[in-house]
Design a protein around this nucleic acid. Structure first.
Lengths: 248, 248
DNA sequence: CGTGGAGTTGACGTACGTCAATAACGGTGG
DNA sequence: CCACCGTTATTGACGTACGTCAACTCCACG
């Protein structure tokens, strides 16, 4: 079969990202594209796609929009443990596991492809590079998760927020979602607070400190980084954990 | 070939753990055992097995002893991002990646099996259940890493330390390393501080608070949990993320 | 005009970190 | 066996980066 121009551009982020992790054969990519097109779905902003404790019966690949993984404590305290950007998959990370250990919520309206478990299994059984690409994705995710641990455990508020902005920026870059030194930042300060382990009030003051120092502009849901190198310095940010540059 | 009794008991934790993640065929297990026996290594306490930035050219499976994954910031701040216990593998999580994003250090004398990259690749290429077991291990690791994020970001000191003790205890249980309500705790308070994102001083005070409340006894490198349920309550600990009970 | 979510600000409290001293411990050599 | 030493654990005094509470503003959307 052949894909329309519209289909191609819709599926582009996923193909681009997986291919960056592991080179995919043309057949593998075609099979994946076809499976994704069959399961296209939309969700509004602020919806839970799946919740902690839910059984995992499909893998979702995000085509547009932002999501987050989060966990909550009984008394309501909430921690966003990671973001999910276009091209990334939701729960391939869990397809071998019985139930979700965390929840996934949309932060914006989202388009994603849902691939049922059996379908996904036959996909990756049929092509080694595809299986490796998804495995690789979960390894990169693991590395990101480790960086978040040191971010939450050892960086002070200003470094923490600066680091988060650097990471978001660098993760959006390879999927073509930045323009110059700006990107959209479609989340509330409460989300940013939950991602950095801060209170909303202190997050707000920290953002203002970053603004006052001239490092960033954040308004109207757009983040502009005036001096990326300076922001990285302030954040003690070193991008190697993102594994963006593969040696082969 | 056949294994001696001593070999069997040495390799037991690894086989037990991988098998719990995914049932291994007898052939797969034999092949893995053989590969491990070929690459047996020992390391003393306090050694770095591999450092951030190093290329990954082999997978290590821990047979006895404790290790930790850690990251450091330029100015020396250090965060232990996870522990590694017998039966777990070190860098299968990274074998598809070019370089390490973190360091791995021994916390005690350690026996491990080193499997070279090419050897490991042919092992998992030859048996699907083995590949899945290792993938599964990295998924569980990912889930643990997420729990650490909420631990560092949203739990207060007492909950954090209590949670760490619960996690260690429950992870040691399936590899037969607890006795009654006790397990060894061969790490310094500085290590525990680096794992919980606290200062040594505050960690010490927190441990004493746990002692004073009668929840734990910690002395002579042994942790005794007087009332596990009470400790779990204090920690807001829910073990499902450890994926210890698989539905199949 | 309301209404509610998001952002912002001030006042104040506190859980943590830092610094520094001391005590307990474990190993080493005499 | 003891003297010595470095590492680890503990304690007190004090500082501070953060959280909490509460008010107020500013929109966006009815």
């Amino acid at each position: 079969m052949s894909l329309s121009i519209a289909d191609r551009s819709l599926l582009e982020p996923a193909a681009r990202r997986l291919n960056a992790l592991r080179p995919l054969s043309a057949e593998a990519r075609a099979a994946l594209d076809y499976a994704m097109l069959e399961g296209l779905q939309r969700a509004g902003s602020g919806e839970d796609l799946i919740s902690e404790g839910d059984p995992v019966d499909s893998v979702r690949v995000v085509l547009s929009g932002w999501l987050c993984r989060y966990k909550t404590l009984e008394d309501g305290r909430r921690q966003i443990v990671n973001f999910i950007f276009p091209g990334e998959s939701c729960d391939a990370h869990a397809y071998l596991l019985a139930v979700m250990d965390h929840s996934i919520a949309t932060l914006t309206p989202v388009v994603y492809a849902e691939i049922k478990r059996a379908r996904f299994e036959s996909l990756i059984a049929g092509d080694r590079s595809l299986a490796e690409a998804f495995w690789c994705e979960s390894l990169v995710n693991n590395a990101i998760q480790r960086e978040w641990a040191i971010n939450l455990g050892r960086r002070v508020a200003l470094e923490r927020v600066a680091h988060l902005f650097c990471e978001i920026f660098e993760r959006l870059r390879p999927v073509g979602m930045i323009e110059g030194n700006s990107c959209i930042m479609p989340v509330t300060q409460m989300d940013l607070a939950d991602a950095t382990g801060l209170s909303v009030v202190h997050l707000n003051r920290t953002v203002q400190e970053l603004r006052a120092s001239g490092l960033i502009v954040l308004r109207e849901r757009t983040l502009t980084i005036n001096d990326l190198d300076a922001l990285k310095d302030a954040a003690l940010f070193s991008p190697s954990y993102l594994q963006l540059y593969r040696s082969g």
